[in-house]
């Protein structure tokens, strides 16, 4: 029986899809059977970030509407045997997602996997509320920046009100994933610190993903960063976060990339 995890944020562009792909891959690398589900109907991108864009035949809406079986729509990752993608539809609009249909698909996925990770679209409309509807657990992706923190607060409110679990009176387990974090800028008082964000949102921290060039490189290649550069700072942060999702206790660190003296100088000058 799977744990259903929604990766959500309210605000767009904070790293939901990257985090879904990286956490999904990290859990699969740890031997878990994982399905990642793209709920961003009309603007799908999880297929692209996972490098499966040319292998999509059927999608979530085909399965919801009964035009395809789940087994026909699931795409197995070429590199990780236990990682599967259920893509969103690129041509249909999200009105085609019925709540009964989504409930049926989620129930079927629960029986097949250890983890079902739902990549939520941005916003608080139907796509986002359907993505969180059946969640047991939520990862709220937040950048240390005012608009992202505000939107995360709004999404936390929705998770406490609009999910099946909330309606049963047992809250969704919420985790904060802080992404694009720059420890040096936070130290200089130029960026909200981890402590600031935690104090404002008051939900437990699952990981801190440092700002890194490897994240863009990974999406350029269509390979989750935990596979494309497993020793890089963001990959180690995602791998640790995946262990914590499984209930393990690890010390919270902000991994850093080793950089040579000249690399450091160069990076400062460009910034």
């Amino acid at each position: 029986m799977a744990t259903v995890l929604v990766v959500t944020s309210g605000k767009g562009g904070v790293g939901k899809t990257t985090s879904t792909a990286s956490l999904g891959a990290a859990l699969a690398q740890q031997g878990q059977k994982v399905a990642v589900v793209d709920f961003d109907v009309g603007l799908r991108n999880l297929d692209l970030v996972l490098g499966a864009e040319r292998r999509v035949v059927y999608d979530l809406i085909n399965v919801v509407q009964g035009d395809a079986r789940l087994s026909q729509a699931l795409i197995r990752d070429k590199r990780l045997d236990s990682l599967f993608l259920l893509p969103a539809s690129q041509t249909r609009d999200k009105e085609a997602l019925t709540s009964e249909g989504v409930a049926r698909v989620m129930a079927e996925l629960r029986d097949m996997f250890d983890w079902v990770i739902c990549d939520s679209p941005a916003g608080i409309e139907k796509g986002a509320t359907l993505a969180m509807r059946h969640a047991d657990m939520a990862v709220i992706v937040t950048n240390p920046e005012v608009s992202s923190v505000r939107d995360s607060d709004r999404i936390i409110g929705l998770l406490d009100a609009k999910t099946e679990r909330a309606e049963r009176g047992e809250p969704v387990v919420k985790h904060l994933l802080l992404t694009r974090y720059d420890a040096a800028r936070a130290r200089r008082g130029e960026m909200l610190t981890t402590e600031d964000v935690l104090e404002i949102l008051s939900i437990p921290l699952i990981g801190i993903i440092p700002e890194s060039q490897e994240v863009l490189r990974a999406s350029n290649l269509g390979t989750p960063v935990t596979l494309s550069a497993p020793m890089s700072a963001p990959a180690r942060a995602y791998i640790d976060a995946a262990h914590r999702l499984r209930g393990e206790t690890l010390p919270m660190t902000i991994p850093t990339d080793k950089r040579g003296f000249f690399g450091g100088i160069f990076a400062r000058r460009v910034a």
Partner: peptide, 8 residues
């Protein structure tokens, strides 16, 4: 420089 406390 110290804009983070304002944001907070």
């Amino acid at each position: 420089r110290s804009s983070a406390p304002v944001a907070r």
